[in-house]
Design a protein around this nucleic acid. Structure first.
Lengths: 154, 154
DNA sequence: TCGATGAAGTTAAAATTTCAACCGATGGCC
DNA sequence: GGCCATCGGTTGAAATTTTAACTTCATCGA
């Protein structure tokens, strides 16, 4: 685009950084998905299992889980349906709120997570964290914290 | 995950930064897609149009375009098919390599890009670039350059 | 010149994600 | 209590993306 209006374009460095982010993210996610395929998971599935594994009683309400991952409820319903079919997650209805549903990590789900985690984390290190200085990586954290904060939920 | 093996986990700050990146990226892309919907585009379509608009004669070979965006050829074929149906892109066969196909931006495609660009770029600024220091944003560029570099093409 | 190998791109089918409509439950509020 | 806007979640269909197979053409070496 040429600059014929008063619009605030990105300057050259910003432009370069923005595109590096887009391309790098695409490549990184593809690589991580690739490496997880051996376990029958994708990054998205993995993140779901991790969130459950960390929650009290290894379970979370569907809406809570969806919010933490910024997914639509519908998408989560479908994904959890598949994870449930694979016996990695179990759904139980919520006593206190009859509309509610708990998604709970099964023992098999936890076991698979234990298997997949070392290789996945190693992938995150090798293809991201260990590539750059601690300061630069911390900056990434600050930047995307600010983004999340700014955009907020929903 | 608890640390019972010799695996190299992420430390607390790295963990936090990694998750901020995942969540922030999800929110950011959703927001940008949202804002582009008014023009009938998504971030992915937009990037395709931009790459074409910058290329000599506003056209690129399919494989070249796919590589620059790190997309599968198949995905690009489908997407360009839709963009072509919308008259934003035109496909022509390549003289010098009969297997080849040029994807070329039409005038309508260029016009739409001109319309969408100011608001899109403003969105990138408002939800990312302008939220953080120039140094931090530059760090993002360095980090994902390193990622791209490390993972390489394919 | 042939034959093998691989690149460029498409295609069809399967898997995933989005979209919109929907249902039962909840929580004010009058 | 009764009304009603909204929440939590699901559903089915449409749209998009992935996967694998396939076609055509290029290239390279014998």
């Amino acid at each position: 685009m040429t600059t014929t209006t008063g619009a605030r374009w990105l300057n050259a460095e910003q432009q370069v950084a923005w595109r590096a982010y887009l391309l790098g993210t695409a490549r990184l996610m593809a690589k991580l998905d690739d490496d997880l395929r051996e376990f029958g998971l994708g990054v998205n599935d993995y993140e779901i299992l991790v969130r459950l594994s960390e929650a009290p009683d290894r379970r979370l309400r569907m809406a809570e889980l969806a919010d933490r991952l910024h997914q639509s409820r519908s998408r989560l319903t479908h994904t959890v349906g598949r994870l449930e079919a694979a016996q990695l997650v179990r759904r139980t209805s919520c006593k206190s709120d009859k509309r509610g549903v708990w998604a709970e990590l099964t023992d098999a789900g936890f076991a698979l997570l234990e298997q997949a985690a070392p290789s996945h984390v190693e992938g995150v290190r090798e293809n991201l964290v260990d590539l750059v200085s601690a300061d630069d990586f911390a900056a990434v954290g600050r930047v995307f914290d600010a983004v999340s904060e700014h955009i907020g939920q929903r």
